[in-house]
Nucleic acid binder design. Structure first.
Lengths: 203, 203
DNA sequence: ACGGTCATGTGACCAAGTCTCATCACTGCC
DNA sequence: GGCAGTGATGAGACTTGGTCACATGACCGT
């Protein structure tokens, strides 16, 4: 068919983001996206399992990056240190490109429950993978889950700040600050009594 | 139409759970569910916005319960204590009924990515509402998010244990134990150096 | 040239979700 | 007692997401 146009996937992604930003997600049909990318409906679904996924393609890499980053941490590192290192490895891979598409992406997702759902799922997957990598290092389950949640939380928080334009900080630096912030918050939380609130013991 | 059969919603939920458990979620169509409930397709969608939601009806209450529980905590309570109280209020409302449907529900969801997505979304909403309620009390954002995440995590963890049959502990007791466990894990996490891992400072 | 593979186009099909209109029971009012 | 209003339902058409089987044409190695 025609000449072998490279980057069919990329063309679909760009077409989708453009159309979603112009007309909204719900008012854009898959045939429309395919048409703008000079492709057909069927080809779209060959590249993405469903319409939502076109906006989340590439996040799969993040999971691997985070998990590998945890695994690559020195043996002596504490869980939080391992998370910090992995976060650094992950955020270092982000390009100005992604910073440009970011705002439009966030806007579309924020305005579409269907996409928020997918985003929540991706985020949960990221946290689960990170927690698994930490458990692999011998970190007990509860601590692994908590540290993973802190890491993922820091990542998204830093991503938001990275997108807000006038910052002159790098993404890795923002991520580190966010993680430190959460670490300090955790310290403040546990400084109180461990469990003296209301509630009755089991009979 | 016919006599005014009460509990159309409930009949739909039970029919859906039964059919999903029998044939799987993907192999069950909405008309099938409606038929078993002696209703029609259109009526199903009048009661639930989509096919997935039939399994999550009722979780809306949990959000309100958790948030109200946080708000009702005494002024002097620490964030974690407030969460503990709210968790107690929430888990106290669970009935043996829900413990019966639980396992089938979990199984169906675990085997269906589409439903895991919805579950992740609901969970995120729960955490967000809890965090908002904590912020309302003056808890700083980072701490609120972290404490909320601990609470929600403890809730789901306790729910899983509550469903595993041979336990003789009440749901509130399990929740409290789960929260204590996470609290201890957090204390262990922050006992290390705050942020001495790899990674370069911002230029 | 020839056969294989890979990306794509084509068209049919199913099920989810939306919408409009008709129907019937119950309620309250005259 | 009859009559309009309300609310839940049924019926059926329609759009769209998602799947599938099959055909086509370009590239590659022999």
């Amino acid at each position: 068919m025609g000449r072998w146009e490279p980057n069919a996937r990329l063309r679909l992604v760009r077409a989708a983001i453009d159309l979603f930003a112009e007309q909204g997600y719900g008012s854009t049909t898959v045939p429309e996206i395919a048409e703008r990318a000079a492709l057909t409906r069927a080809t779209f679904f060959r590249h993405f399992p469903d319409k939502r996924e076109v906006l989340f393609a590439g996040q799969q890499v993040h999971t691997a990056l985070l998990a590998d980053g945890i695994a690559a941490a020195p043996r002596t590192a504490t869980p939080v240190e391992a998370v910090a290192g992995a976060l650094d490895a992950l955020t270092s891979t982000f390009t100005p490109d992604q910073r440009e598409f970011g705002p439009r992406l966030r806007a579309v997702i924020a305005g579409t429950p269907e996409l928020q759902e997918r985003a929540a799922f991706k985020r949960a997957g990221l946290a689960a993978a990170t927690a698994a990598a930490l458990r692999e290092r011998g970190v007990p389950d509860a601590a692994a889950c908590l540290a993973a949640e802190m890491g993922v939380h820091a990542f998204y928080r830093a991503f938001d700040r990275w997108l807000e334009a006038p910052y002159r900080e790098t993404f890795p630096a923002l991520a580190r600050h966010a993680l430190d912030e959460l670490h300090a918050a955790a310290a403040a939380l546990v400084s109180g009594p461990p469990s003296a609130g209301p509630g009755r013991p089991a009979p």
